[in-house]
Simulated assay, not measured.
Amino acid sequence: MPKARAPQVGQEWTYIKKDVFSGKTLGVIRERVASMDSSITIERSEDGIALPSEIQSS
């Protein structure tokens, strides 16, 4: 199985939320690795407004 590199603090992803019917942009969601300790903390925002970060474990 190929190895994936570990996330780094400051690494971020950007997603554009679109209306599938009109193609209109509804928002921009950004996720950024804020810290890495025994767990990884991701800060999330939509159009500059903080979103809750949910951690799910199995």
Rank of each mutant, 00 (worst) to 15 (best):
G27T: 07
A50M: 11
V28I: 10
R32D: 02
I16D: 12
D37A: 10
F21C: 04
K18Q: 11
A4V: 12
I55E: 13
A34H: 00
I16F: 13
T41C: 00
R32M: 14
I29D: 00
S58E: 13
I49G: 09
I42Q: 01
P2S: 15
V9P: 00
I55R: 13
E43H: 03
S39V: 07
S45A: 12
I55H: 10
S38D: 15
G48R: 07
K17D: 12
S39Q: 09
I42L: 06
K24L: 04
A6W: 10
E46D: 06
P2Q: 14
V28D: 02
E43P: 01
R5N: 07
A6Q: 15
R30M: 00
I40S: 05
D37R: 05
P2I: 14
I16A: 12
E31K: 09
A50R: 12
K24C: 03
R30N: 03
I42R: 02
E46P: 02
I40C: 10
V28E: 10
S22G: 04
Q8W: 09
S39D: 11
R32N: 08
I29W: 02
G23V: 01
A4M: 13
I55W: 08
I16C: 08
W13F: 13
M36I: 15
S38P: 03
V28H: 06
E54P: 01
P2R: 15
S57K: 11
S45Q: 10
Q56Y: 08
T14R: 04
M1T: 11
P52G: 13
E46H: 03
A50S: 13
E31N: 11
K24N: 05
E12D: 07
K3Q: 09
S38Q: 14
A4I: 10
R32Y: 04
E31Q: 11
V20D: 03
G23D: 01
K3T: 04
